[in-house]
Design a protein around this nucleic acid. Structure first.
Length: 772
RNA sequence: UCGGGGAUCGUCUAAUGGCAGGACAGCAGCCUUUGGAGCUGCUCAUCAAGGUUCGAAUCCUUGUCCCCGAACCA
């Protein structure tokens, strides 16, 4: 992979679906519940959902999953669409699950009529008790098997409004003994006499997620329904709902396209977990309600609104999501990656200006006149031609510099100001520190310096920033740091214990050059200090308030000691889980129940060894097959066992031995060919794959296709020469010492020979050819 | 009667039986009118043990660890 970024697993699936003709059009959706603001975790999902649609010329809907009126609000609906668009994505349609309530209701009636759903009048606790547990099956309630007509009438009463909240629910009738708890007659509808932000008081029954979500996807003709890992268990139910209701895409929702014959399929990826960040909407809401932060858009919040106010750009966030990738591993992303994405983006776009946070007075003793100097807005590496402009800076006798930029007794390697030393004032020439003035307490209060005429012959220590004391602009600066000082704040039971007390420092002494006022509406860099932006809520032209977006990388400052990370406690649940039964135990069990299996196993232990006997005679299908194959060629028993154990599973893929076209006789014949050296193992494996799907006689196939092993030097030499000639760079690398490439060359030759070459000969000849 | 997922540099992520690659972080050097940026180089990984194969991160077996699932939430 040289330039093209490797495809993630979702795009690989989409490629395959397109190639197989399962879909002509790729349709995705981003389905947030409007019960809070979107955060960086949603940003990843948005980039995945909208990104895939964009990459394949498809469509992506923004669909509010608004099925629970007790938690959802218009404020959230509005913020979500604003944030999606701000991030840079335009929904093809903005839709609401609540718009489908009538269709969902009708489909539910259909389910009841077909005996696939029923109204259960058990209490909450009864339902829970009857559902069983992870290790015990559930049991039916006494309403489950009443006639459909009863349930239909009851469901209509639910809708009519005469029943109290919790009086009854509609459940799918699936399987109370299912090992997937989601399939144990899941709830479809519950009664909620609550005002809905969109449907008002039209409904008092509301569909559950597991019912509403697949139907919404199907109605909208979604091809790939992408969600996060915790919904893996819901996928089986997702498929059930679509199949059981027979829901079809709605013409007006698929924009005139022909509906796909393939129903929507759900795929799951790992949601974003970021160090030092809390992602739970419930906990985020609590921070807002408790006043720990100033609101959902507090610049310390991981919300898109907060990050926008903080000064992160949509490009930076998208590039971060790109950096993180999409996979199924449970992973925690280093927060440094976000910081990198933000700095990388701002470096290219933020004009450079000067500002001093903690001023120290400097008097230029040889300057009497007020003047103006100019400086470029960007350094040369960002703007080589200077096309992006300059600005003017007032220069006066009285200046301020950063207090940190002066040291009375500088350490080794100090590149700033010190008594007697010379530094350059950015864009304004060099100064020498002649005199240090202190107050009665001994604190340095003023530096008296000389502005040196150019060219400066003295040694210049470094460059520092400065601002005119009288013509600079006073402002408030808010220095933000991470909200939590624990790497995994979600693991803490009490949020208060992991809050970073220094997450906001307000600096009131700051003074910046006048150009900042007009330019800080978008991010700027105060050179050597950091990136800043005017606060969109509190900043006013006559009372500038700057937010620090992020610090500059600082290779000088010693890394501050990290707070001790809070160790995540192992969940109590995983500790009490029963160990799962191993495959070997299942096989043992099968033999205890089946005497024939047990007898074959006992006989095979001596002939084939304990491991092979266990694997071959642990289920009836494999055991029957193995017995027949070995009977056909008893001399090759061990080899047949080896192939059956190690190679046949791969040839079968996800399929079963019983469903394949492979016969015991064919396998025995194939093994015979390999054992005799008539064909190579590589050809044998290829043939096996074919036999598994199409069947056939291996001996005849070998003859018909000329698949006999090739080992003669005369036959192999030309192939080897061709491979070497085609890869001159690799040959040079190999001869330069990268001997690991031998495998690469052998592989190439094997492929070129169609697998027919004898590997031992190839190894020998290739090594010889490369040496010479 | 438990079921469903997942384990590759410190971190994130590639490699679908044939070169363990990239990015972030780290370290070193160069460069620099930002101790910024940039450039160059370096360090660093296949959960473990067996097996199959000329060749295994990849296939088989066993084991270990992590995540999810028993809301009238989504």
């Amino acid at each position: 992979m040289t330039d093209a970024r490797a495809k993630d697993f979702l795009r690989t699936i989409v490629d395959e679906d397109l190639a197989a003709g399962r879909h002509q059009h790729i349709a995705t959706r981003f389905p947030p519940e409007p019960n809070g603001y979107l955060h960086i975790g949603h940003a990843k999902a948005i980039c995945v959902d909208f990104g895939i649609a964009r990459d394949y010329g498809g469509t992506c809907n923004l669909r509010y999953d608004d099925t629970n009126p007790t938690k959802e609000e218009v404020e959230y609906v509005e913020s979500i669409e604003r944030d999606v668009r701000w991030l840079g994505f335009a929904p093809d349609r903005v839709l609401y699950a609540s718009d489908y309530f009538e269709e969902m209701y009708r489909l539910a009636e259909g389910l009841i009529e077909r005996g696939l759903a029923y109204v259960d009048e058990s209490t909450d606790d009864e339902i829970k008790a009857l559902r069983g547990s992870l290790t015990e099956p559930g049991r039916p309630s006494r309403w489950r098997d009443l006639p459909a007509a009863h349930h239909l009438a009851r469901f209509r009463e639910m809708r009519a409004g005469g029943l109290a909240d919790g009086a009854c629910v509609l459940r799918a009738k699936i399987d109370l003994t299912a090992s997937n708890m989601k399939m144990r007659d899941p709830l479809l509808y519950r009664i909620r006499h609550a005002h809905h932000h969109r449907t008002g008081d039209a409904w008092c029954i509301y569909p559950m997620y597991d019912y509403a979500h697949p139907l919404s996807d199907a109605l909208e003709g979604i091809s790939h329904s992408i969600c996060t890992l915790e919904f893996e268990n819901n996928r089986e139910l997702y498929d059930w709902v679509i199949a059981a209701t027979g829901v079809a895409p709605r013409a007006d929702l698929i924009g005139g396209r022909a509906p796909s014959k393939t129903p929507p399929r759900q795929y799951e990826f790992a949601r974003l977990v970021l160090e030092y960040t809390m992602m739970s909407k419930r906990k985020l809401l609590k921070l807002v309600q408790d006043g720990v932060v100033a609101g959902w858009d507090d610049p310390r919040m991981p919300t898109l609104a907060g990050m926008r106010r903080r000064g992160f750009t949509p490009e930076a966030i998208r590039s971060f999501c790109e950096l993180v990738g999409v996979a199924k591993n449970n992973s925690t992303v280093d927060v440094g990656k976000l910081e990198y994405a933000v700095r990388d983006d701002l470096n290219a776009r933020a004009p450079r200006l000067l500002g001093v946070l903690r001023p120290l007075a400097v008097t230029l003793t040889n300057v009497t006149e007020a003047s103006i100097v100019t400086g470029p807005l960007f350094p040369e590496d960002i703007d080589p031609t200077g096309a992006r402009g300059r600005r003017e800076l007032p220069l006066d006798r009285a200046l301020v510099i950063e207090a940190d930029d002066f040291a009375e007794a500088p350490p080794a390697g100090w590149k700033r100001l010190a008594p007697g030393r010379v530094v350059r004032l950015r864009h304004a020439g060099c100064v020498r520190c002649d005199e240090v003035i202190k107050d009665a307490a001994g604190a340095v209060v003023e530096l008296r310096c000389t502005l040196l005429p150019e060219p400066v012959t003295e040694k210049v220590a470094g460059v520092i920033h400065w601002v005119s004391a009288s013509r600079g602009v006073r402002c408030e600066v808010r220095l933000y740091d991470r909200l939590f000082n624990a790497a995994k704040p979600d693991a803490a039971e009490d949020v208060a214990t992991v809050l970073n007390p220094k997450s906001l420092e307000i600096v009131t002494t700051a003074i910046v050059e006048p150009a900042v006022v007009a330019r800080a509406k978008t991010p700027i860099q105060l050179e050597r200090v950091g990136y800043f932006i005017a606060d969109e809520v509190d900043s006013r032209p006559d009372a500038l308030v700057l937010n620090r977006v992020i610090t500059l990388r600082d290779s000088w400052a010693a890394a501050a000691a990290e707070a001790a990370p809070v160790v995540a406690k192992k969940s109590a649940r995983s500790a009490t889980r029963p160990d799962r039964k191993s495959a070997r135990e299942y096989r043992d069990e099968a033999r205890r129940r089946d005497e024939v299996l047990a007898a074959r196993h006992a006989a095979a232990v001596d002939a084939l060894g304990a491991d092979a006997a266990d694997l071959l005679h642990g289920d009836r299908a494999t055991s029957d097959f193995a017995s027949a194959a070995i009977a056909a060629a008893p001399a090759q028993a061990k080899a047949i066992a080896r192939w059956l154990i190690n190679e046949v599973p791969r040839a079968l893929g996800d399929g079963e031995l019983a469903d394949s076209a492979l016969t015991p006789a064919a396998l025995a014949a194939l093994v015979g060919l390999c054992d005799a050296g008539t064909i190579t193992a590589a050809v044998g494996k290829e043939l096996l794959a074919e036999l598994a799907t199409q069947g056939g006689d291996p001996v005849a196939l070998v003859d018909a296709r000329g698949l006999r092993q090739v080992a003669a030097t005369d036959d192999l030499a030309p192939i080897i020469a061709a491979v070497l000639a085609a890869n001159p760079a690799k040959v040079a690398e190999y001869r330069g010492g990268k001997t690991g490439l031998l495998g690469f060359f052998v592989g190439q030759v094997m492929k070129a020979s169609g697998g027919k070459a004898n590997p031992a000969s190839v190894n020998q000849l290739v090594a010889a050819a490369l040496a010479g």
